[in-house]
Design a protein around this nucleic acid. Structure first.
Lengths: 113, 113
DNA sequence: ATTGGATATTGACAGATCTCTATATCCGGC
DNA sequence: GCCGGATATAGAGATCTGTCAATATCCAAT
């Protein structure tokens, strides 16, 4: 925050901020993208989506990572709202939350307008 | 990679990996999402998109961050392919690369199928 | 109640990320 | 050629992230 740059009005574009409510929506979207920003988590999502639903015991052997690490990634995805998890007896089943994914898709699309 | 979990065939779903070429595409997509996973960068993208194109001297005063930090974020976005930058005289103008954004949109959409 | 397998949590560590200050580079005008 | 403003790079520090081993918790079956 040191070097103050001053743009000549005639040559540079006028300054315009993102509206506050947009900024709030964007930071929520950023949280979703943060969850999506890891190759392992993306592959997990893709795999779960493809299988419709999966339990962790079947996710673990696929990714070459420890069970706690997979559990951690599932938690990140869950807290971002990208998957839902349901316990059935001993196992916990995970599925992709299409609504959340499509919400992110929409936010992202708007950047290309 | 310690605790081996073994799922009973009858109760758990069969294991299925993501195809290698999909995995490669996904890790490329993850790189784009990594660039999108920061609130500041998302707001920058939104602002640039809204203004069609912007030069850094006008981006800097909007975000309350130092010029080098903005320069860094622009570089991250550029290296992810999300913006293109063109020098005109003293200034560098940035615009959103719609193609890259839409590519990410498509990858993301497929997770919700 | 005890046992064993599935999942979650904790603590630790290496590496990445974001931010700054300071400085360098680039470019147009004088 | 020099100066001043715009942009880029380098170095440093604080924080966040992904991973593991160890351990705790939960559940069904015995």
């Amino acid at each position: 925050m040191t070097t103050q740059t001053k743009a000549p009005e005639a040559l540079c574009c006028p300054i315009e901020e993102v509206a506050p409510q947009d900024a709030a929506a964007l930071s929520e979207t950023a949280a979703i993208f943060k969850a999506l920003s890891d190759g392992t988590r993306l592959r997990m999502l893709k795999t779960i989506s493809h299988m419709t639903e999966m339990c962790e015991c079947n996710i673990v052997p696929v990714f070459g990572l420890s069970q706690p690490t997979i559990s951690y990634h599932l938690k990140v995805l869950r807290e971002a709202g990208l998957i839902t998890s349901e316990r059935r007896g001993q196992w916990v089943w995970h599925r992709v939350n299409e609504k959340a994914v499509l919400g992110a898709v929409r936010q992202l699309s708007e950047l290309a307008i």
